[in-house]
Amino acid sequence: MNGGRAIILGRIREALRNNPAPRPHTSHSQSEAAADHNGHAQREWLPKVGETLPERIDLFAKISEGLTTEFQRVPTMSAARHLITKLATESQWKKIGSHSHQDVDALLEEIELPIVRTEKGYAINDLESCDAGITGCDVLVAQTGGIMVSVESAGGRALSVLPPHHVVIARTSQMVPDLTAAFEHVKQKYGKQFPSFLSFITGPSRTGDIERILVLGAHGPKRLTVILLD
């Protein structure tokens, strides 16, 4: 029932047996780093990230601007609530999606709209007709201006991509320097029991498929708001 497994494996082994390929022409001796590394070697080559938290937040803010992510820093949860109420009124939300999550629940305390909660399952059309999806996240990545979400931190797979506006709440303690650190976080948090879905979201959905001209909101959210709680 697994098709040509034995044949393909046989062909692979046959192809590799006593038939070494020339090593890549590399100027640095990196074969050891490649064979047994934990991702730290890569930090030497990848875009630079500051050492301190304020530097990282600044970098995240700068990249967010380029991506048109709406990045909002707030001092307290009550300021965050104020912000989400304003968003809801301005954008005339009629229904929103959310999930069971400490910060998300706290954020939505004063919102009086109908809420589709995803944690116990939901009807696709019901979620599709929401004006916004409000989720938490695992980490924020300074180097790329991205957020990492998972089944657990974002209420499943679809809540963060189906409604046209995605709002994320995060705390400064969730800011990590780079993707390597994000993966380390994932491994520590979940051990071997990974959720079936993990995603780096870097800006609102976009396409350049028509004359290479940027259009936001191709299939996913047109707007992405990141609320960072100090």
Binding site: H99, T118, E119, K120, G121, Y122, V151, G155, G156, R157, A158, V161, F194, P195, S196, F197, L198, S199, F200, I201, T202, G203, P204, S205, R206, G220
Partner: peptide
């Protein structure tokens, strides 16, 4: 914009 890692189908207790 999206780099997504999938580890199998929906797992026990996952909503979708």
């Amino acid at each position: 914009c999206y780099n997504t890692m999938y580890a199998g189908p929906r797992q026990l207790g996952e909503p979708d």
